[in-house]
Design a protein around this nucleic acid. Structure first.
Length: 485
RNA sequence: GUCCCCAUCGUCUAGCCCGGUCCAGGACACCGCCCUUUCACGGCGGUAACACGAGUUCAAAUCUCGUUGGGGACGCCA
């Protein structure tokens, strides 16, 4: 690599950071880090109608959350007006562009007509060869002209680092607008100016930009400037095989964050969408990704975003993490649920660690802790209907639980351990001539309201004698009450 | 309508550039068994793919062409 590697991610602040944009960002970031280059953040906010300050903030926060630290920027296109003006002048004077007096309304009408008549949708070249008199007439009407690039005959080609040699006939490309009537640049023009001005070495973006690339190459030529290298990545599709959209459910990184996904899992998963290291590794650390990432290994076909696999991967990361770190990540989730306060977590850290220990291999998302672990923090839960039918709605159920409650109550608290209570229950079962499971299932239901969950004696120990006894008695009351009805 | 791109299990992919080692490997999901107080974790096993048709070749998932299917682009949006 002769020139230094400089890549960029250029989101437009019309919404939160989209997972598609994030994936492109990850690839750019990995490419920069792999090559010891720079990763630049540029905000494409030339359209004030669709640019929101709070989204600029949100995008940056999501980037940071994913660990995509940038070396330069954010640059804002909205603050670069003078630079564009200079280049617009240069383009106008180069003779490669001309003024177009057609109004947006006229053009829209023509486009619609062409579409209805199933004709190619293209600019008709109305203003391509205007005489001075024509121009004067339009000016007299008060029309403000836009600046269009005059596309030469022939064809345009470039070598894509992912898709290889690509060619397109210039006849297929419109004379497109570079500067609007008010002087502001359009996307393609601003993009070229910025990439050149920021000395971007590789433009790595979604393959929906391939058509734009031909146009941009033409701009570079008209300006007499050397274009960067281009690499287009496949587009990740939603389950419906279309460009991932709102209908999909979660489309922005922030939503995944709120669902309880880990940033490292998202980065790992997204990096593997359309790219693979070539061996059979799947769970890869950030460093491993950086080390292995090359454009050559990008698969050109569009992948489908598979949420189930993301969830699996998130679970892998949860299980890999130390319990201490997991608890730290769980803390905000727990607090938000209203189940516990931060103070309670902090003052009971050791106990919390044991709680997390019992749940860690059962959760895939951080948020799963709320539903699955609620019983550790509150007595206010209802009994799972199916479970109650099966374990409570049985002759002798109340008696069994009463017996268990009494025996538990008699146990000195020093013996109220996982081992101690299990031994007690098994002995009791033997005396009753029943299998331990016949007591264990109702016990779990009484203690947690659920039929699934951590080992019941872990729960017993963590809850402690008093809570266990109280919950058993509450269950007995519940059974007697429903028996009366 | 025009143009561009893509095509291996349901999904993500390895293999394709440099044809034989591929009756196609891994992962998710699914199914079964084991472990077990439940669920989960873990272990073991299973179902499942080279879109189709021609051609080149002794030999094609791999090369060529066509068909079909999918995606994208065609804005004074980005």
């Amino acid at each position: 690599m002769t020139s230094p590697v400089r890549v960029r991610i250029a989101p437009s602040p019309s919404g939160h950071l989209h997972v598609g944009t994030a994936r492109i960002g990850i690839c750019n970031w990995l490419f920069a880090r792999h090559n010891g280059g720079k990763f630049i953040l540029r905000i494409e906010d030339t359209d004030p109608e669709r640019s929101f300050a709070e989204m600029v903030t949100s995008i940056q926060e999501s980037m940071k959350w994913l660990g995509l630290n940038w070396d330069e920027g954010p640059y804002f296109q909205s603050q670069r007006g003078e630079i564009y003006t200079q280049w617009t002048e240069r383009l106008r004077n180069s003779g490669h562009a001309y003024l177009c007096y057609c109004t947006p309304e006229e053009l829209a009408a023509k486009r619609e007509k062409a579409q209805q008549e199933k004709q190619p949708i293209r600019y008709d070249g109305n203003c391509r060869n205007l005489s001075d008199a024509d121009r004067a007439r339009y000016e007299a009407e008060g029309r403000k002209p836009a600046l269009r690039l005059r596309i030469p005959d022939g064809e345009t080609r470039y070598t894509d680092l992912v898709y290889g040699d690509l060619t397109r006939s210039n006849a297929e490309l419109d004379d497109f607008v570079c500067a609007r009537a008010d002087g502001r640049p359009t996307y393609n023009f601003a993009c070229v100016i910025d990439d050149h001005d920021m000395q971007i070495s590789h433009v790595i973006r979604g393959n929906d930009h391939i058509t734009n690339t031909f146009k941009q190459v033409l701009i570079y030529r008209a300006l007499g400037v050397e274009p960067p290298l281009f690499a287009h990545l496949p587009l990740n599709l939603g389950k419906d095989r279309r460009k991932i959209s709102k209908r999909e459910g979660a489309t922005s990184v922030i939503e995944y964050q709120q669902m309880g996904f880990l940033p490292e899992a998202i980065v790992n998963f997204l990096a593997l969408l359309g790219w693979s290291p070539g061996d059979e590794r799947e769970i890869m650390t950030r460093d491993e990704l950086v080390d292995a990432f090359t454009l050559e290994r990008v698969n050109p076909s569009n992948p489908v975003f598979d949420m189930q696999k993301l969830e699996w991967m998130n679970g892998e990361y949860i299980r890999k993490m130390s319990t201490n770190e997991l608890l730290e990540r769980l803390t905000p989730v727990l607090m938000e649920s209203g189940l516990v306060t931060r103070l309670h977590i902090q003052t009971n850290w050791a106990w919390m660690l044991r709680v997390v220990e019992t749940l860690r291999e059962r959760i895939r998302l951080l948020n799963d802790i709320v539903e699955q672990g609620a019983f550790y923090f509150t007595d206010k839960f209802s009994y799972e209907e199916k479970g109650a039918k099966k374990y409570f709605n049985r002759p002798g159920a109340a008696e069994d639980l009463t017996l268990l409650s009494n025996e538990f109550g008699k146990l000195p608290s020093s013996d109220f351990t996982k081992v101690g209570t299990e031994a007690l229950l098994r002995k009791l079962a033997e005396q009753l001539g029943r299998s331990p499971a016949e007591l264990i299932h109702p016990l779990r239901l009484a203690l947690t309201g659920m039929t699934t969950g951590p080992g019941v004696f872990d729960i017993v120990e963590l809850l402690g004698r008093d809570k266990c006894v109280a919950r058993l008695q509450h269950a007995v009351d519940f059974i007697r009450k429903s028996d009366q009805q």
